[in-house]
């Protein structure tokens, strides 16, 4: 009987090596462990053994059983692993097939720039306020120290409505509206649409400006330089050089036009900057006392400064669109680029 047990073990272990499928394994299991299995038969024959033989053979039988059970288990695992490997191989995908991208839209390029400008000034404590596009002569010109026969009005090419209103030529009227509605300190920026009768590759009849105004008991021209320098360094990079040139605006005095070092040539001179190394980005100045008088602020008590910039112009420093009218065609091939 001992011999028989040894033979069964050797035979079963050999047979397991040839097992390729779970079905084969199962039939082999039945061959040995089934109700009529070979090992089962041997175990059943245990009863016929003598009392003396029984412990020894019983021990051996148990050992064989344990060995074979472990071997069957291992084969089960191996088969499972093999099967899984085969399945994973079958499941391999073509990684070059296109992904299923979630749709996403993009803000209009002018809005992207406008939002950046707003964010920089908000961080410096400026509040965003807005005003109407349809304005009166008073807010657009008179209150801004630009009376009817002022030559500066020629520079504006204003759209007039048939009812006598006009489309604001700049966002500056909101300065007046804001000061009429609040007492100093004032620290606002005014983004918005403006309009001028102009239509060519570098002008659209509607464009966007951001106006800024700071009024306080002690706001100085040096602070205007500080604010605008901080803005430009954040907007155009911390290496940006600034140039403040005297200029004329009816509603600021002293007034300045502000240049930054050319973003293309870093100030060395190139075609973008006409060789000068400088690019004009905004107009600014200390608030003219006449403007304070128009809103009943006492020019002896408060000082302030204002600035204004064209968003399309700043956008185009980056985008370099040859014909800026493209901004407002809303061609999706264009909008997707930004």
């Amino acid at each position: 009987m001992k011999t028989e047990l040894h033979a069964i073990q050797a035979e079963a272990l050999a047979a397991l090596k040839d097992v390729k499928t779970p079905d084969m394994l199962e039939s082999l299991r039945i061959t040995y462990f089934g109700r009529r299995g070979k090992l089962t038969d041997v175990m059943k024959g245990m009863g016929k053994l003598s009392k003396a033989e029984r412990p020894e053979v019983g021990k051996l039988a148990n050992e064989v059983r344990t060995t074979l059970t472990a071997a069957f288990e291992e084969t089960t695992h191996t088969l499972h692993r093999q099967q899984q490997e085969q399945q994973l191989e079958r499941e391999a995908v073509d990684i070059t097939l296109p992904g299923r991208k979630p749709a996403y839209g993009k803000a209009h390029p002018v809005m992207q720039i406008l939002e950046r400008i707003e964010a920089i000034f908000r961080q410096m404590g400026f509040e965003i306020v807005t005003g109407p596009d349809v304005e009166t002569e008073y807010y657009n010109f008179d209150a801004l120290n630009t009376p009817a026969d002022h030559p500066a009005r020629d520079l504006h090419d204003t759209f007039y409505l048939t009812d006598g209103h006009l489309l604001r030529t700049h966002t500056s009227p909101v300065q007046i509206r804001a000061m009429e509605n609040q007492q100093p300190p004032v620290r606002i920026i005014v983004p918005g649409k403006c309009y001028r009768v102009d239509y060519d590759v570098s002008h659209t009849p509607m464009f966007h400006q951001v106006e800024g105004l700071l009024v306080d008991t002690h706001a100085t021209f040096s602070e205007l330089k500080g604010i605008l320098t901080a803005f430009a360094r954040q907007m155009f990079g911390d290496q940006t050089q600034m140039r403040f040139r005297p200029h004329f605006f009816p509603f600021t005095e002293p007034s300045a036009e502000v240049d930054i070092s050319c973003t293309v040539c870093q100030g060395n001179g190139c075609r973008s900057c006409g060789g000068s190394g400088w690019i004009e980005i905004l107009g600014a100045g200390a608030v003219d006392p006449a403007v304070f008088e128009a809103v009943n602020y006492d020019p002896g008590e408060v000082t302030g400064f204002a600035f204004g910039m064209g968003v399309e112009r700043i956008a185009n420093l980056q985008f370099r669109i040859p014909d800026i009218r493209t901004f407002y065609e809303n061609d999706l091939r264009f909008l997707r680029q930004f």
Partner: peptide
């Protein structure tokens, strides 16, 4: 200011309150 030179005017940050 313009003859003194805008470049010669210092660059400072506002000291006033933030509304």
């Amino acid at each position: 200011a313009r003859v003194y030179g805008y470049d010669n005017i210092p660059t400072t940050l506002p000291k006033g309150d933030i509304p």
